[in-house]
Simulated assay, not measured.
Amino acid sequence: MLKLESVKVSYGAIEAVKGVSLEVRKGEVVTIIGANGAGKSTLLKSIVGLEPVKDGKVYIDGKDCTYVAPHKRVGLGVAMSPEGRGVFADQTVRENLMLGAYSRKSDPRAIEEAIEREFKRFPRLKERQHQLSGTLSGGEQQMLAIARALMSEPRLLLLDEPSLGLAPLIIKDIFEAIRQLRHSGLTILLVEQMAKQALGVADRAYVLETGLITLEGSGKQLLNDPKVKAAYLGAH
């Protein structure tokens, strides 16, 4: 579903991603863990086209998408729930969801069905569907960001730090939603600092340090790896 070959991304003279190769197979949950500033968010942005790739290749479902515009990648079945949620604060919950379905605007009935599906997944959003998104709690905004990404009916969902700044009970709800999406067959690439939870839900995982992949393996292998335990699991 996704393959990166020696991808490099730079901000001026600073190389944030230094030649990353990874793959995500259809139906897998793959997680990327790493410290702040490791290049995780930059890597996700390069996959959806929000950061230009300086060198290397991005393949989505076998197609070279290295220089394909972001909106066209949505059409190829890719969607992202960004770090910081990025909800449209002055739009209602329902309007945010409709914006997530812009690529399907020619089919209003399908959009309504998708909205109802997300309300079933996140009942709290249904209760607040006419509320301005800027007035929601952090957890509700995260639910909305994920639901909005799902409105385009992606085949590959990128989740960037979905637990960031949330209370433990809400984090539990978010990871339960990720498990349900996995059972539905959706392919997911998850960037997450809550390493224990992320590795627990992942089929496979990569460790990113200062723009380079330093470890890879199954979620279980990395959970039990002494280096990963020492660096990322001590606080969880």
Rank of each mutant, 00 (worst) to 15 (best):
N96T: 14
S103C: 04
L99N: 01
G62P: 06
H71S: 13
K54E: 15
P82I: 05
V78N: 09
A89P: 04
L99T: 07
C65Y: 02
E51T: 07
I47P: 02
D61I: 09
Y67K: 15
Y59C: 05
G84W: 02
G75T: 05
Y67R: 15
T66A: 01
Y102V: 10
K45N: 15
T92E: 10
R73S: 05
T42F: 01
D64V: 10
L50I: 08
L99H: 09
V74Q: 00
A110S: 15
G77T: 14
V93P: 04
V93C: 05
R109M: 06
V48S: 07
T66I: 06
P52N: 13
I60T: 08
G100Q: 07
I111Q: 02
H71M: 09
S81T: 08
L43F: 14
A110C: 04
V87P: 02
N96W: 11
R85T: 04
V93W: 01
A69S: 07
E113I: 08
R85P: 05
A110M: 06
K54Q: 08
T66F: 03
P70S: 03
S106E: 13
Q91V: 03
T42L: 01
D90L: 12
G84K: 00
V68Q: 03
S46E: 13
T66R: 08
G100W: 06
L44T: 07
L50H: 12
K105N: 11
V93F: 03
A101T: 13
S106F: 12
I111R: 03
R104I: 00
G77D: 06
L50S: 08
S41P: 04
F88W: 04
L50W: 02
K72I: 08
R109Y: 11
A89M: 12
G62F: 14
G75E: 12
P70E: 09
N96D: 15
S46F: 03
K72W: 10
K72Q: 15
D55V: 01
V48N: 09
A114C: 03
V68M: 13
K57C: 07
V78Q: 10
Q91K: 07
K72C: 12
V48P: 04
K72E: 14
L44Q: 00
R109G: 04
G84S: 14
R104S: 02
R94F: 11
E51W: 01
V93L: 03
R104G: 00
P82T: 12
A89F: 02
M98G: 00
V53S: 06
G56Q: 12
G84D: 04
V87E: 06
C65W: 02
K72Y: 15
L97T: 01
Y59K: 13
V78D: 09
D64G: 05
E83D: 13
